[in-house]
Every structure is written in structure tokens, then in C-alpha cells.
Amino acid sequence: MITMNKVSKHYGSFQVLADCTTHVNKGEVVVVCGPSGSGKSTLIKCVNGLEPFQSGEITVNGVSVGDPQTNLSKLRAHVGMVFQNFELFPHMSIAQNLTIAQIKVLGRDKAEAEVKGMQLLDRVGLRAQALKYPGQLSGGQQQRVAIARALAMDPICMLFDEPTSALDPEMINEVLDVMTELAQEGMTMMCVTHEMGFAKRVAHRVVFMDHGRIVEDDHKDAFFANPSSERAQQFLAKILQH
């Protein structure tokens, strides 16, 4: 579904990504982790072309992201993305947040989009909030709406960029529950996250990054039981103690 081949990116002389090669198969959940500044957020933003990269190739469902001929808007419409800071549109009600792109991008009619939006709101347990505005919801609720908004576009895969990092601890689980459910239904997912519990429970593979390089790319059991690099061992030792 997603393939990356020797992707490199630099800002001036600063190398953000160096020869990153990995893939996400259909129905697979891949967790990307690593210390801050390791390039994991940049990597996931390259997948839907939000960040340009200078060399290498990324394909999503066979379409090359870096190719100037590619219609990126069309590609992105089917690649859901969830952000650290939710990024709901603050001037629209929750219902409008869920329908606007269905109507303007996919060309669905309003009634159809509303039905779809309400179904998804129901699914994330927020049907009662449909007429409120994002500023009136808690962080966890906003992030669940953001997931529903992405799902409303019938995505072929979902990208999560630290979806729980901006949340209060007690709201993290409500978001992880929604993500776990999605994964169990067979959604193709690439998640940048520090939630190692989630990774252990749900992921198929774990990609570990450091200084813009993919240091480990392994089955999750192998990664947690026996990380091959010293850097990953240190990282896990620090994270898992807590």
C-alpha cells in the first residue's frame, strides 16, 4: 500500500531524512517511533506530500507521491491523516467539519455526507456533540472527531502523527481505543507514536528512527523482545520503565 525507497530530505545542510526505506502492506499497522527530532513526523508527512523530499521514491497504492504529474489533492483525499493538534476547522460545527470535504472534494450531496458524518460520529461516541464547535470539546473528543473526519473520506489508509501527544493522560485511552478498533477492522495504518503499549497490542511492525535514519524495521515481537541496535535498546529501556 505504501512503499518508501531511499527517501532523503534536507533543509540546507541539515539532513532530516537519510535513505529511508520501508513499506506498509495492506491491512498492516506500522508504528514509527524514536526520540524527538529523529525525523518520524517528517517521514509520515512525506507520505501524503505535505513535506517535499529531495530524493528517493514514495508510492501510495501505486501512485508516486514525488512525481510532479501526480494530482496530490486527489491522492490525499483517500489518505486519511490525523494530527497531533487535532486541527479541526474551528469556525465550523462538528457536523460541518465532517461533511465539508465530502461535499467539496468528493462531490457527495449534502444529505449523503450528513448521513455518513453522523454514522462516524456515532462510531466514535460523539453523536450528541454534532452541533457544537471544536472549541467546546475536550482534546480527546476533538481528536476522535478528527479521526471520524478522516474516515468520512473512505480512506484507503490512515496516517497518524503523534495523535495522543497533546492530550491529557486521562484522554489518551479514548483515542487509542478508537485507533485499536480501526486496526482490528483491518485498516492500513502508519502511526507515529510514543504509546508503546498501543504498539505492543496492535502493531504488526515497528520502525525505529534516529537522526533521520531508519535504524530498525522489524516485527513488533522481535523489536520489543530483542532490539538489534544499541540506540533502540536505550530508547526502550527508558520508555518501558515508566
Partner: peptide, 12 residues
């Protein structure tokens, strides 16, 4: 992030 979110959902 607002611009990114809008682009990511498929807006031109």
C-alpha cells in the same frame, strides 16, 4: 497545522 489539515483532506 490548519493548512496541512486542509490539504491533507484533499482540498486544493
Amino acid at each position: 497545522g490548519q493548512k496541512n489539515a486542509a490539504l491533507a483532506i484533499g482540498f486544493t
